[in-house]
Simulated assay, not measured.
Amino acid sequence: MPPVTDYDVLRVFCGPHGGYGNELGVVRNGAVMPEREERQEFAAKLGFSETVFVDDPERGVIDIYTPTLRLPFAGHPCVGTAWLIDVPELVVPAGVMGARQDGEFCWIEARAEWVPPRTLRQYATAAEVDDLPVPPKGEWVYAWAWLDEAAGRVRARAFPGRDDGIDEDEATGAAALLLTDRLGRALNITQGTGSQILTAPQPEGWTEIGGRVYLER
């Protein structure tokens, strides 16, 4: 592995005032680290919930890793990278998705069948979600409750259940996509300590996921 690799750090799905959001590492020049084993090692070294390698910035071809595995699709890495390289679409192993900028929000369009299995667990109140301990390893749990059902406002927390040092994900677009697909309606999700994820069902099984992105360094 090269001793120094340039990468950007973004925060994706930030709150209304720019805080919170889930950190993301992006290696803009994926060619510096072409081998999958190198990429996995580098993602583990950075320790973010996900790290992205951009393999073709013009076509939007990207490769996504957690500290322990490669992903065919993930929400916050796709939203963050779409914002960073400003392309009309992204290409991931799961498929090709549209991307767009809309004022302070960046959006992608993806499909529920691209998302690995998740347990969507509804609670009666947001306070119950707030008070949850980290569940045992092995099950990927998206805990949620209505803040205002009529307005589509949701409180959520995400527990990946993996042995990679990340007990809770601050903001997870893929899980938000699954919840949106199940409920069949647009959602305004407050996740983690204060991140915001917006979603909207689209025709033919697509779902839009949007949020604010900030360049950390």
Rank of each mutant, 00 (worst) to 15 (best):
I209T: 12
G80Q: 09
D167V: 03
P203I: 01
V52R: 07
F48K: 08
D131Y: 03
A174Y: 04
A74R: 12
V52S: 02
S49A: 15
G18R: 06
Q101T: 10
E38R: 05
T190Y: 04
A31P: 05
A74M: 11
R185L: 04
P16N: 11
C14N: 12
P2A: 09
T125I: 06
A127T: 15
P57Q: 10
L178M: 15
F48E: 03
T66S: 15
I85L: 12
A110L: 05
D181F: 00
T190G: 09
P93C: 07
P116N: 04
G47W: 11
E89D: 06
W144G: 00
G138V: 12
T51W: 01
H76F: 06
V26L: 03
V12E: 11
G211H: 09
F53I: 01
P77F: 02
P34C: 04
P135K: 09
I64T: 08
F53K: 03
M33Y: 07
A145Q: 10
A74Y: 09
I85D: 04
E109C: 09
D130Q: 12
G75S: 06
C14I: 04
P77G: 05
D63K: 10
F48A: 01
G165P: 05
T119E: 15
R212Q: 14
T180V: 03
G75F: 00
A176D: 09
E170C: 00
T199G: 02
G19M: 07
A171P: 04
I209Y: 09
G47P: 08
P2F: 02
P77L: 06
I189H: 00
R70E: 15
T51Q: 08
R59N: 13
P3M: 08
I108A: 07
P133G: 03
G103S: 09
V54C: 03
P93R: 12
G25K: 11
P117G: 02
M1G: 14
G152H: 13
L178T: 11
D131N: 14
W144Y: 14
Q202C: 11
I64N: 08
L46A: 03
G18M: 02
G103Y: 08
A176F: 05
N29C: 11
G173A: 09
H17N: 14
E58A: 14
V27N: 07
E104M: 04
R118L: 15
Q122G: 01
A99R: 11
A112C: 07
A94I: 06
V134S: 13
G165D: 10
R59W: 01
G184W: 11
N188A: 13
Q101V: 02
A110W: 04
G47C: 09
L132D: 08
P2V: 03
G192K: 08
G80E: 08
